[in-house]
């Protein structure tokens, strides 16, 4: 899944944007989202749990959440005037039963 291109900003998990030069730093930008599992998805996943394998509903749920966290990070980067975010990291933490926080963070920079 392409996380960067649709949002009009360069994203990279390397320390610079390959082929470009960093001219200004704006500090750390973050984006998060907390999601709970959908009851319908949970029932399907429960059935799937008997035979094992991929739980597609959860894969999509987490992908959507990660995209949203990235979008929030990008919005923050844009608001400080950056045109790229480098060294992007993702993290997941279980907050309570059935809810998880996904967040993305990176360093907002201006590249040329």
């Amino acid at each position: 899944m392409d996380l960067g291109q649709p949002q009009g900003i360069s994203l990279s998990n390397t320390e610079s944007i390959p082929g470009k030069r960093i001219v200004d730093f704006y500090g750390v930008v973050t984006g998060n989202t907390v999601r709970a599992k959908h009851i319908g998805r949970d029932i399907m996943a429960g059935l799937k749990n008997v035979v094992g394998g991929e739980l597609k509903g959860y894969t999509e749920l987490l992908q959507d959440s990660r995209t949203e966290a990235t979008e929030r990070m990008v919005a923050q980067a844009k608001s400080v005037g950056a045109n790229a975010v480098v060294n992007v990291r993702f993290a997941t933490s279980s907050i309570s039963q059935g809810a998880a926080e996904l967040f993305a963070y990176g360093t907002a920079v201006r590249v040329e």
Binding site: M1, D2, L3, G4, Q5, S10, L11, S12, N13, T14, E15, I17, P18, G19, A45, K48, N49, V50, V51, G52, G53, E54, L55, K56, Y58, T59, L62, Q63, R66, T70, V88, F90
Partner: peptide, 28 residues
């Protein structure tokens, strides 16, 4: 790793990801 061969001229770049959620079957 991050380094690319010197002969490569990088045009554009983006962040890509792939993910999957799996579970064990009941027997296992």
């Amino acid at each position: 790793f991050e380094d690319t061969p010197d002969t490569w001229r990088v045009g554009s770049s983006t962040l890509v990801s792939g993910s999957v959620v799996v579970s064990l079957d009941y027997f296992k």
